[in-house]
Computed example of a mutant assay.
Amino acid sequence: MSIDTPSEHLSEHLAVSKLDVSNMVAVVTGGAGGIGKGIVTALLQRGSTVVIADIEAGTTEATVNELSELGPVSGWATDVSDEGSVTALAEHVYDTHGRCNLLFNNAGVTSGGGGKPWEQEPNDWRWCFGVNVFGVAICTTEFVPRMIAGGRPGQIINTSSGDGGFAPVPTASVYAASKAAVSCFTEALHTNLVREGHNLRASVLYPSGGMMDTGLFTAQRNRPAHLARVGESTGRRSMTFTELKEIMTKVRGYEPEVADLVEHGNFVIDCVEARRFIIARDLEDTVALLHRRAEAIGRFEVPDHHNLGL
């Protein structure tokens, strides 16, 4: 009796058509600024209908007004870490549009300045994992069953990071751990969608191609009071994108490359239409790092970590 390997079993269901995002309905969490706004812009340019789900109502309204000339776009104030808020979002999307074809779980925060692992407080974990991990999980729970029931082709795109998604970051341990969780969860999501023969697939997005001018660096502005730190600072304050860019320029001796977020958004949508699982650029150094990690694990040693941190 022959036993199929997992890869042989999955290959029976891997053949799916490429997507055409025109006329699709997309939900983008954290879509009012940064990477999410770039994705929203690219979707609208290609004929999608977009619902921006963001915790900052004022910024969301401003983004909707700015981008409305590109196509049908609306906003819905959403806290992805709150089940009731996400349920309300899903009900709004399906009551208004009758479907969701593309779900971008993009909302994300840092833990509050990094620091040594033992300096992190429980609230740092609750805040960071609440948005980065529970947010992805809750949105998946609310939207994917509805998407499956609709029977239409679609994609779930979860934003991870090379900081954690590929390797740990000693100076940003909580944030990196949250992004490692997103990568692991997305692989499981994709595998189960394939095994059950659905028209849905999952992708994991590793933003790449230069520094990203996003609100992630100042995410503490949205940190709930009940999840505030209660002890002393870790000694690493949050900084703006401009401040980080200036520091990196001094350290390197030259200005780092800054990504064009709309161009990045179009790159992401190209990969979504091709139904690529890994959405990233310039992976040569990452592949080399992962090989070194695998070799170290095989020697029972501590693997190399990611040199970048927030």
Score class of each variant (00 low, 15 high):
130 G>H: 05
118 W>H: 06
106 N>K: 09
134 F>I: 07
95 D>C: 12
111 S>L: 01
107 A>V: 10
118 W>C: 05
131 V>G: 01
115 G>A: 02
123 N>R: 08
125 W>V: 07
125 W>I: 09
114 G>E: 00
136 V>S: 12
98 G>E: 02
102 L>F: 14
103 L>R: 05
113 G>D: 00
122 P>V: 10
96 T>Y: 14
134 F>W: 15
120 Q>P: 11
113 G>H: 00
112 G>W: 02
129 F>K: 05
100 C>W: 06
128 C>G: 03
133 V>S: 03
133 V>R: 02
122 P>F: 04
96 T>N: 13
102 L>D: 08
118 W>N: 09
114 G>V: 01
104 F>I: 10
99 R>E: 10
101 N>C: 14
123 N>K: 14
99 R>C: 13
121 E>R: 01
107 A>Y: 12
131 V>M: 04
119 E>H: 12
116 K>G: 04
120 Q>M: 12
133 V>D: 02
123 N>H: 05
100 C>Y: 11
123 N>L: 11
100 C>T: 11
130 G>I: 04
117 P>S: 06
118 W>T: 15
96 T>F: 06
119 E>G: 07
116 K>T: 05
110 T>Q: 06
121 E>V: 02
117 P>K: 04
105 N>W: 04
99 R>A: 10
126 R>V: 10
128 C>T: 08
111 S>F: 03
96 T>C: 15
101 N>M: 05
111 S>A: 13
122 P>Y: 03
98 G>H: 07
